[in-house]
Design a protein around this nucleic acid. Structure first.
Lengths: 329, 329
DNA sequence: CTGTTAGCGCCTTCAG
DNA sequence: CTGAAGGCGCTAACAG
């Protein structure tokens, strides 16, 4: 491994000049810049990130905090997409990522967590799947000691950005399309878990639609559970004209119940997960591109690390018609 | 953040002494050792891993290489367990993990990959889900420049360890139990993908059983696909007494086909994935504890990094009776 | 057993 | 615009 010194010697300049070129500083003549770059190429030189971190006291380290407590297949799918999106972007931005799980922070105080991050030279944290009951994380955010990006939780301050699609609008749109295309005056809405931030936002969307379209609206908590959705559909499904679900998983549960009851009701979902083991069903759903969301989250982290202020980032979504497929084609 | 210097001053000793205590070197009197530890506690000191890495030229960095190409829910579940197992153990062992995906190495030569690892100070790589067609990785392993642990691929050399359950034996056992409990003389075996290392091993297991029990054995390639398994079962299922599948997913496909054909055949699976969206089915399967496997893989990596030689590690498995459950309970 | 010292590879003023 | 020099926090001989 050649070092900056070798490059300097080969280019016939001082170490500091090389450093400047490497980091894109001004005040280097075009000529020497080119000479340095050439030497870099010839030696196949890559700066040692460890030395650079130590010297500059900027490691560019960001932790991805994944909520793995709710063990469900869809969540796994979503988390994997989150991971690959963030990591891919991080490689491009030369940020240093480490993956952590909520479970590792269990039973630790906000202070201990801070110490841990600090000792690991972690400067930023992207939080996925945070719930309203996660007080420790909320405190961490409140402390403003780290740059933080929260996915799907509307928390913003000077050092914290939030990133998500417009859940209210998306829920409104997908439900509207389903209702209008099929007709119907009464809606059964199966909502998400009470502690989820998005649950309330999506709820607002369906309520707006109900108001606008003068629909009668029955709301039941499905907790993002396929099973619960199924049970609730058995109980209330036949009384409704349309069933709107706050997640694809619940939509599957609802559809299965309807099949077993041998009645038809239009159903719509939310998330646009790609993998489902149920054939022959169709519905509208909100397609969230989790990979892209996570890339954007990493972008936003880059901005924060460079001194940008926290802000709210809203990404777009799509309403798509989804066809269930076999798990592996 | 206090530094080693502060600790030294506070304990009234030299920096190097503190370093020795920190790293558990000998040649420090019990007394000073205690004094240093006290200072460490009082200052709430944690050594800066970056500085330590730079100085010692040992970053303790290991990359997790996850195969995310085959996008299936079960694979996601398994990969998440791999990730959390490895990362949890790494935290305990103070190793520095970064997660990478096969897709990031696509289109790169073994040399480029080596350079990348080297530039990132990565010393070890744990490879999950490598196939026989991954020649680039095979070359990387062959080079012996990095410490490597391969999960579920039987490759071993001085710097490479392999870790897996005994697939041959496991397949033998689960099939044997299923056959003996239900009786039957002919077996339909749905095998995995041709490029998977474990496919062949599992095949050997069922072949051994067939020999021992004098079973007639029909082998069909199911490619770990639920859909294919289903189709194959439609075609060949009724002619067999028992259906043995090389994965749970295929077992599900087989069972669904049997249900639709309205005939009964005992089925068994492999992997013991916890999440399946199918209710009311039961079968024997091989339970692999992916979380634990991955922890062990990280342990093994620790051994290699400390200079141990590559070896083959075989973990135990269980044969369990599995009851399908709803996705979310 | 303990302290001194010279780096690790890079960044960053500060002179020139 | 370029180069010299002093660290960043820690490790590792080497003296004492």
């Amino acid at each position: 491994m050649s070092s900056i010194k070798d490059v300097a010697r080969r280019a016939g300049v001082a170490i500091s000049t090389v450093s400047k070129v490497l980091n894109g500083y001004p005040n280097v003549s075009e000529e020497t810049r080119e000479r340095v770059n050439e030497a870099v190429r010839e030696l196949n030189f890559t700066p040692n990130p460890i030395a650079s971190a130590l010297s500059s006291k900027k490691a560019g380290r960001v932790a991805l905090l994944i909520n793995l407590d709710t063990k469900t297949q869809t969540v796994d799918e979503i988390n994997m997409q989150y991971l690959s999106g963030a990591i891919n972007r991080a490689v491009e931005k030369r940020l240093d990522v480490r993956t952590l799980f909520f479970s590792m922070l269990r039973d630790r105080s906000a202070e201990e967590i801070e110490d841990y991050f600090r000792s690991q030279s972690i400067e930023g944290v992207i939080i996925y799947g945070m719930g309203m009951q996660d007080v420790v994380l909320q405190r961490l955010i409140g402390e403003r000691r780290f740059k933080i990006v929260v996915v799907d939780a509307p928390i913003v301050n000077e050092t914290t950005s939030s990133i998500q699609v417009n859940h209210e609008q998306a829920q409104y749109e997908v439900a509207k399309r389903t209702v209008l295309e099929n007709g119907g005056k009464s809606v059964l809405y199966l909502s998400g878990r009470a502690d989820g931030y998005v649950t309330g936002e999506r709820l607002l969307g369906i309520q707006r639609l109900a108001r606008e379209e003068k629909l009668s609206l029955l709301i039941k908590r499905g907790d993002f559970s396929e099973k619960k959705a199924r049970e609730l559909t058995f109980q209330y499904g036949s009384d409704a004209d349309v069933i709107v679900c706050a997640s694809d998983l619940m939509a599957i549960g609802a559809m299965r119940a309807l099949q077993e009851m041998d009645i038809f009701r239009p159903v719509c979902g939310f998330d646009g997960i790609t993998l489902m083991g149920y054939a022959g069903m169709q519905m509208y759903t909100v397609k969230q591109d989790f990979y892209r969301i996570s890339r954007k989250a990493m972008d936003e982290m880059g901005r924060l690390l460079e001194g940008g202020a926290g802000r709210r980032v809203v990404l777009d979504h799509q309403i798509i018609r989804m066809q269930y497929q076999d798990v592996i084609s």
